[in-house]
């Protein structure tokens, strides 16, 4: 992990992050011992099935965990500043300024009662020390940058007057207008059509590389990851299963879960009559099995997997958290 980032400045560093939700029946851990770094200008893809903890990890980083979920232990560092224990007012100054956010549904992340220009100006004035007129110009520039035609005229339009793809562009403009060093994009293209998805992915990549913004791209779509991400983190039941350069993880997966996930996409089973499938489903957090959480579905599981979760990511060259991963990587 460290060597992959040596030539880049580390923007976000997450260390042994644990998020806990106390419930009446049990203490749930939707995020368990997660560590990763994102460098400037880098896109880290975070994949996993629903309930794997990928969105929860993103929300923990921007301090948007809903009660009773909270960070139980671990550290989050942003540009050398520790941000996981900040108070609400302090994290508000960072959110929007240092960290931009793009959510899945662009209609619910924009205020339907305000023109988009108003929302952009508000964000710019809140976070940058610029006069009103300058904010106006910046808002138009931000819209032009994300490819909205006739930005100067459309700045007074309301969110409902835009199509889904254009709305997501507005959200990206909003996320980037205060020039953050990190953008968290949570399923930014899931609600969009294929052709519009291609446009948004290409826009995100271009903006990130031009400005050197670090991007945490949360998605369940392996195809999107393959096209956009530099490195990929695979999550399963709240833990990081595998982390590595996207080409290597996707073509030579080290964790049996990644192997199964890749094989079960129709693309990978091209020409075959049946798809490869992983038996069973991800266990609910309240009933995680002992040992490695994947062992009931794992074709390679042995006795030791039933008792011990196996080496952590850092323990085996930073690639995969699995007893059998070290041999696969070596």
């Amino acid at each position: 992990m460290a060597q992959a980032l040596s030539n880049r400045e580390v923007v976000l560093s997450v260390r042994d992050l644990v998020v806990e939700i106390p419930t009446r029946r049990a203490l749930l851990r939707p995020v368990d011992q997660v560590s990763f770094d994102i460098g400037a200008g880098e896109i880290l893809g975070v994949v996993g099935e629903s309930g794997a903890g990928k969105s929860m990890t993103g929300n923990a980083v921007i301090g948007l965990l809903d009660r009773p979920a909270h960070i139980a232990s671990g550290e989050i560092w942003l540009n050398g500043q520790r941000i996981d224990h900040l108070r609400r007012e302090q994290i508000r100054k960072i959110r929007g300024k240092e960290i931009g956010m793009v959510f899945q549904d662009p209609l619910t992340s924009l205020n339907p009662l305000l023109p988009i220009g108003e929302q952009l100006r508000e964000t710019i004035l809140e976070h940058l020390a610029v006069p009103q007129r300058e904010a106006e110009a910046r808002a138009v520039a931000a819209l032009e940058e994300v490819g909205i035609p006739a930005a100067a005229e459309r700045i007074n339009s309301y969110p409902h007057e835009f199509s889904g793809g254009m709305r997501q562009r507005v959200v990206i403009a909003l996320a980037l207008c205060a020039e953050p060093s990190l953008v968290i994009a949570d399923e930014p293209t899931t609600a969009l059509d294929v052709s519009v998805q291609a446009q948004i992915i290409s826009l995100l990549k271009q903006l990130c590389h031009e400005r050197g913004t670090a991007v945490m791209l949360v998605t369940h779509d392996m195809g999107v990851i393959a096209e956009a991400a530099d490195r990929v983190a695979v999550m399963y039941a709240g833990r990081l299963a595998e982390l590595g350069p996207v080409r290597e993880v996707l073509t030579r997966p080290a964790h049996p879960y990644t192997t199964g996930l890749m094989a079960s996409t129709p693309l990978a089973s091209k020409g075959r009559k049946r798809l490869n499938q992983i038996p069973g489903a991800m266990p609910p957090l309240a009933r995680l099995p002992e040992g490695c959480a994947f062992h009931p579905r794992c074709p390679r599981a042995e006795d030791k997997c039933l008792q011990d979760p196996g080496p952590s990511l850092a323990g085996c060259g930073g690639r995969a958290a699995c007893w059998f991963a070290t041999e696969a990587v070596a």
């Binding site: 294929v194 052709s195 998805q197 291609a198 446009q199 992915i201 290409s202 826009l203 779509d221 392996m222 195809g223 999107v224 393959a226 096209e227 530099d230 996207v246 080409r247 996707l250 073509t251 890749m262 996409t265 693309l267 990978a268």
Partner: peptide, 15 residues
């Protein structure tokens, strides 16, 4: 435009 698993860092003109 459909995402492909082998299209690492593909730079194509989006539709």
């Amino acid at each position: 435009a459909a995402p492909k698993l082998d299209a690492f860092g593909r730079e194509v003109e989006p539709p």
